[in-house]
Design a protein around this nucleic acid. Structure first.
Ligand SMILES: [Mn+2]
Ligand SMILES: [Mn+2]
Ligand SMILES: [Zn+2]
Ligand SMILES: [Zn+2]
Lengths: 149, 149
DNA sequence: CCAGCTAATGATACAACATCTCATCCTTGA
DNA sequence: TCAAGGATGAGATGTTGTATCATTAGCTGG
């Protein structure tokens, strides 16, 4: 990594089940399987891919659980330029995303100027800001290297 | 409008057909109808809505033409938090979007700090930045006023 | 530990959005 | 004027996600 600004999640979060329990959800077999799979898994994924990686689990259950984990803050969602949604384990702090348009890899980044910018705009806008999405699209170093082999 | 930062497109672009012609596309009846409709229309729309507003035109043709106009820079695409795509006539300059999560209205805005920020990040990132998406989600002034009637 | 309540599951249908197919039409340039 | 081939549109197909609902299986209170 060139700077400390961006990072990938190297460590999976083992506290996925407690998070669900705290929210009053039942700890079921399917949710356990999904949690174990996510802890082992690397990189970003679509809900469809996740369902494919977990044969025996119903598609609807996988979609429901992804939404659950999104609400719980365990997963976060990045959107590709074409609108496709990719999920990845979420870091604990507010952040934004680098998304590789070639391999779909999602890296989180934080930059103080981003929030400063949003604050500056907020005071100028006739209405109520309720959220923002900032995604930077890139070809990651790995994809660049692979491309010019 | 409270500031000069943001604006909606008040004036439609009459130069839609020449743009297509310059790109080597044929000037067909369906494209003419779509162009005239867009020149008259206000606000943002989905491809599906546009197709509904143009009975007699094939759905596939509308979708194809929207993509064409997107490539030509006549239309721009904003993405709602749920992933839905909304199109609107595009201004001539690079910009970003306010999107009202209540009524779907899209307002363009420019802010020098945005591009300054992207430049600052670009030099820090291990890879090649190929684009960015910055969308600010809001409840617009009209929706706020309507909500507390 | 058990029974019962009810959340959760999953097969399936449904829905929205977008693209593909291909026979036909029509714009365009020679 | 007349082919050549781009464009159209009805319909099929694909993708992503949600709704139904009968059945399963956590959880809790007794
Ligand atoms: Mn994230
Ligand atoms: Mn725009
Ligand atoms: Zn990559
Ligand atoms: Zn609004």
């Amino acid at each position: 990594m060139a700077t400390a600004m961006a990072h990938e999640h190297a460590d999976a979060r083992p506290d996925l089940l407690p998070t669900l329990e705290d929210r009053g959800y039942r700890l079921t077999g399917p949710r356990l399987r999904i949690a174990e799979h996510l802890a082992r898994r690397r990189g970003s994924f679509t809900a469809e891919e996740l369902a494919g990686e977990l044969p025996g689990l119903g598609r609807a259950t996988v979609y429901r659980t992804v939404k659950l984990l999104l609400d719980a803050g365990v997963l976060c969602k990045a959107t590709l330029p074409d609108g496709a949604a990719r999920y990845s384990l979420d870091g604990p702090h507010h952040h934004h995303h680098f998304v590789c348009v070639s391999c779909g890899k999602v890296q989180e980044f934080r930059h103080p100027a981003v929030e400063r910018l949003v604050r500056a705009i907020r005071s100028d806008v006739p209405g109520e800001l309720v959220g923002h999405r900032i995604e930077l699209y890139m070809n990651c170093a790995e994809c660049l290297a692979r491309g010019q082999e």
